[in-house]
Structure formats: structure tokens, C-alpha cells
Design a protein around this nucleic acid. Structure first.
Lengths: 336, 336
DNA sequence: TTGAAAGCGATACCAG
DNA sequence: CTGGTATCGCTTTCAA
């Protein structure tokens, strides 16, 4: 019987309080210009007085989408991905959207489940860092989907220009006089892994002709720390004359592993050996020596991804953004 | 006019297809046992045939909540927090919930905005790592809110037992024969900073009595890497006789900074100096020497948080989980 | 420009 | 145990 049950106020309460119809309230809430100023004021006052907050579920039911963007990624603890997540969250927030996070753990089945779940929740769009490069059948849906960093199905990809970025490393090292290189690759069943390798190797070949040839050993690996450490240990287990003077890793994590291995072997970086990474994760600045690497433009990447979600039409082709060489102290002139 | 506009099927379509009422469909969907088997079968068949997927917005409108848990944290790129996020996501996923992520960047105003936004979206519950320890007025709501790691307003806190964890470090170091210590504290306006300091200092006092006294210098700092490096440089800038033989840092990041500083001064860790951290972030295992530290039980912490969200009643008191000493190579016997 | 009213798709109560 | 139906809170025609 008491009327002050403290129920959260609805649009109807606001209308009553303001003495207008709920249609009018809805209009001022959605900022339609065609509302007389004096009515708008009354509504605004009522909203403030009642502490009204719109019910998103009801709105979603009518409009068929909520102000949420889904973000599916392999692993949030990967420092590069978490940086991307941070930027995605910022961009979405700036547009008054929240982000729903889902981790696929690199399992396409889990990834699929999450995407379905997101779709069921009528998200505004989904950005996904694919679990694998394997082609998958696209969903037949009208919700925008954007691939970030790693391509998902046939959806447009936004990524760093790995080829160009890797070439920067070759420039830098050749300039420092290095001629004996080892390249620790990423997994070659990923486009990222392939592109970085190709970018480095091709450009190195261009820079060093027959009169000034370069030695190059290539070792396939994973993107993680262990891989970098293990491969480096093998690489350096040869007579000094045959040892590479520069180790180029396909990821910062590998490079950091390489740094460890070098230290364990008593080698001084950068005097005896130069090491480079790729990504510019936060740790790159914290290890000793600080890691020379290629910075991925994470915030730009995220920005483009969110823009694509909100654009009326999907980008008609993949978007690629240049990386930037960050010179730190893990690289120096070649020994001798 | 065409009837096959491929509209997504609704519960009504399923009912028609199965020749039952929508009430019945709703019942089998929500797994109510009181449905005759043959009807259930028909419904299941219809669901499969039409590829029906329930509309979450409509459900949310009726039930007043969606299967989402909100997670508000200062910064997803902090390695400890991202670890927590991963576990939170797993636990939520296991309960068929998605997580909405929001970063506060340590700004209470932004934090407040995000929490409001989450509430507006009728989430099932919210777990928050508070932006600051300052007391805030609780929201008057019936959605469960749980504090994780750092207390938010008056909501029950789930955290590591910092006192116990810090005491472990004292045990370890005293056992190794150290008697001259320096403690690099975290910010003392945070409970975490205070608890770790108290835990270490008190236990150290207990272990070392007047017949075998311990020297202890305490320096307040931030939890970050720079702080650790800077303070260590000052700490070690004294005659060798007066130098501490062990530096105990309130966080791994500080400890890693300390490691850098020690190396820059030409000191060998652990021969000349032992260093310890707290958290056990991934990097702790990667630096040289590997860092002895206290591991926070992240997955257990996350598990308890999600359990608390789903529990009928909020925990009546804070939950505290013990940390674990991880012995690595940054600590060794005291010199001499 | 504004008000009235028709749903959006599900849940849950009430009869039968 | 099942079917009908009111209802959740909002957006969006349709008239006035």
C-alpha cells in the first residue's frame, strides 16, 4: 500500500513527475532535437529529482543491441594482448560502451562458443584476436566483427605492418656492422610468425650483397620466453668464431629469454652479442639491458578496430599500421 | 510478404513448431523438471530445427539481471591484475557468465562511473579491485559487490594474507643468517603497503631477540620498478660495513629495480646481497638472478570472489588466503 | 511537436 | 502438468 517502496524509478515515473507523456521523456533521453525547450527542462528536472537511470535491458530488447563490444582474445596475461585490451577498453569507454572480455586459450572451439555467447547478448560488435590462423566459416550475421592482430575467419584484419617493422631491425643491425645473425622465428603456422621472418630476412638480403654477405641461421620457435631461452642456448653453443653477433627474436618474450640465456653463458649484451625483440611490451623497458625492439602501435590498432566496429560499412580491406624501432641498450656495434 | 525473411526465431516460433504453448517451451528451456518427456522432446526438436537461441535482453528485462559479472580494476596491464582477470574470466565462464571489464586507472571518479554503468546493465555481481583505500559511501543496491586485493568501500575483501606472506620472508632470510636488513615499503596509504611492512617487521622482531639483534632500515616507496631502483641506490651508498645484506621489497617490481641497481653498483646477488619481492609475477622467474618472492594465490583469490558473487549471502567477513614463499636464486646465505 | 498505444521476447502466475 | 496472459521498461509509429 505504501507508495514509497523505493522501487527504482521508470520512465513512466519520470513522465508523471514531469507531467508529460513517456514518449516525450524517451525523446529527450535520446536527445531528439524536436522537443520544446520548456518540456525538456521539466523532464531533465524530473530525471534529476528521481535519480532516474534507464533500464538497459528494456532498451536492448527494443533496439536489438546493447552498448557493449565483445573482445575475444587468446590470453589476457599475454602482455601484448593486455595492452591491446587496455586500449580497446578506453576506446569503447569513450563511446559509452563497455567491453565484454572472453579468453579462448587458443582453442578455436572455446573461441567459437564465446563468440556465440556474445552474439546472443546482442553486442554492438566483436573484435577478435584469433585463436589460430586456420580459415573458418564466417558466421552469417549482421553484427560487425573485426580481426585484430591475427585474422579470424574472413573478417577484416587490423594489424601492425610486421614486414616493415622487421625490416627496421635489419636496417639497425646492419648499420651497427653486424654480419652474423640468428633469427628466432615465431610459429610458422601463424601469419604473424611468417610475416616477421620474411620481413627481416628479405630486407637483410637486400642490404647485404655478395661483396658483403651476411650469415643467417633461422630457428623456428614459439613466441614465449622458454622458446627464446632454449633456442639461444643452442645457438650460442658453438665456437666463438661461428657464433652470431646478433640474435633477432620474433617477439619480446623470446628476446627476454635470449637475454637470460646469454647472461647464463657469461656473455655481455650488447658488447659480445646484440639482441632484439618485437612488440615493445612493458617488460622490454625493465629488463637489463633494456631491450631494443619494434613497438607495435597498440593504441592506434585498438582505435582503428573500434572505429571499424562503429563505422556504417566494414573496411573493404585489411588495415596495416607501421611499427617503430625503439633503440635501447641491448644492441650495439658488432664485436671486433 | 515472403514468410522466410530469416528472422531469428523466437520462443513463439518454437512453440508453434512444436505444437505447444510458449509457457511450456519456457519451462523446458529453464530446465524445470515438471514437464512431460514427450513434450520436452518435441520442444528440443523444434529448438534444434529452428536453430533457436534465446534473446538475453528479453530475459534480462523480466529477471532483472543478466548473466554477466562486472570486473573493475585499476589497470589491466599490471601483470598481477591481468593474472587475476584471467582467473576471474575462467571462473565466470565456468558458470556460463561473461565478464564485463572496466579500468579505473586508479581514479575513484572513473571507478564510480564504471560501477554505475555496470549496475545500469543489471549485472549479476561486481568484483572490484579498488582504485584507492579511501572509504567511500556504499551504494544502496542489492547486487553483490566484492572487493578483491584492495578494499572497495565497505564490501567484503578477498585478499592474500600479506602479513603471513611477509613473515615468510623474514623466516627465510633470518634462517640464511642475515642480520642487517633494509625494507623497501609500498605506499603507506594503502592497506597492502601497510600490511606487508607490518608482517615483515613484526615477525623479524620476534625472530631476533636482544641477544641476536637485527638492524633494519625502512624506506617508504611506491610499488613500481623505479622506486625500487632509486631507493636501493641510496641504501647501498654507504660503507660496506653498514650495508644491509638483504633488501626486502614490498613488490616484485621494486625488487627487480633493486636487482638492477645492485648490478649497476657491481654487487653480486645473492653473494653480496640478497633481494626478495612479493607477488610472483611472471617476470620474477625471468630476471637474473631469478627472484625469491611470495606468491599470491591468484586463482584461489578469483575463485573465492566469484563464489562470493554467486553465494546467496555475502561473506560476513573478509577472506584471507595464505601466500607461499618461492625460493629462487636472488637469496643466499649472509656474507661472512 | 506531443500523446497514446503497439509491441520487442521472454517469464511466471493463474486457472483448469 | 499445461495453456493463456499480464507484464518487465523502453522505443517508435500513428494520429492529433
Amino acid at each position: 500500500m505504501a507508495k514509497d517502496l523505493k522501487k527504482t524509478p521508470t520512465i513512466k515515473d519520470v513522465a508523471t513527475h514531469a507531467g508529460v507523456s513517456i514518449g516525450t521523456v524517451s525523446r529527450v533521453l535520446s536527445k531528439e532535437p524536436a522537443v520544446k525547450a520548456h518540456l525538456k527542462e521539466k523532464v531533465d528536472a524530473a530525471v534529476a529529482a528521481l535519480g532516474y537511470r534507464p533500464n538497459f535491458a528494456a532498451r536492448a530488447l527494443r533496439k536489438n543491441h546493447i552498448d557493449v563490444v565483445g573482445f575475444v582474445l587468446p590470453d589476457i596475461t599475454n602482455p601484448f594482448f593486455s595492452q591491446l585490451a587496455k586500449s580497446i577498453e578506453s576506446e569503447a569507454s569513450a563511446r559509452n560502451h563497455t567491453v565484454m572480455l572472453a579468453c579462448s586459450y587458443n582453442d578455436p572451439a572455446i573461441e567459437q562458443t564465446h563468440i556465440r555467447a556474445l552474439l546472443d547478448r546482442s553486442v554492438r560488435g566483436i573484435v577478435v584476436i584469433a585463436a589460430s590462423d586456420e580459415a573458418e566459416n564466417s558466421l552469417e550475421i549482421d553484427v560487425p566483427v573485426i580481426s585484430l592482430d591475427r585474422q579470424y575467419a574472413k573478417y577484416p584484419l587490423i594489424s601492425t605492418n610486421h614486414i616493415q617493422g622487421a625490416a627496421l631491425v635489419a636496417d639497425h643491425l646492419v648499420e651497427l656492422g653486424h654480419r652474423r645473425f640468428a633469427y628466432i622465428a615465431g610459429p610458422l603456422n601463424t601469419e604473424v610468425g611468417r610475416a616477421r621472418q620474411v620481413g627481416f630476412v628479405q630486407h637483410l638480403r637486400q642490404l647485404t650483397d655478395d661483396t658483403d654477405p651476411a650469415d643467417l641461421i633461422i630457428r623456428p620457435g614459439q613466441f614465449d620466453y622458454e622458446s627464446g631461452e632454449k633456442i639461444t642456448l643452442e645457438l650460442l653453443d658453438v665456437p666463438e668464431k661461428a657464433r652470431p653477433t646478433a640474435i633477432v627474436a620474433a617477439s619480446d618474450q623470446q628476446a627476454i629469454g635470449a637475454l637470460r640465456a646469454a647472461r647464463d653463458l657469461g656473455l655481455n649484451v650488447p658488447n659480445d652479442l646484440s639482441v632484439t625483440g618485437f612488440d615493445d611490451i612493458v617488460l622490454a623497458e625493465l629488463v637489463a639491458p633494456r631491450l631494443t625492439t619494434v613497438r607495435q602501435p597498440t593504441s592506434e590498432l585498438a582505435k582503428r578496430a573500434i572505429e571499424a566496429i562503429f563505422a556504417k560499412t566494414a573496411p573493404d580491406e585489411n588495415i596495416t599500421i607501421d611499427g617503430k624501432l625503439i633503440r635501447r641498450t641491448s644492441t650495439g656495434p658488432a664485436p671486433n
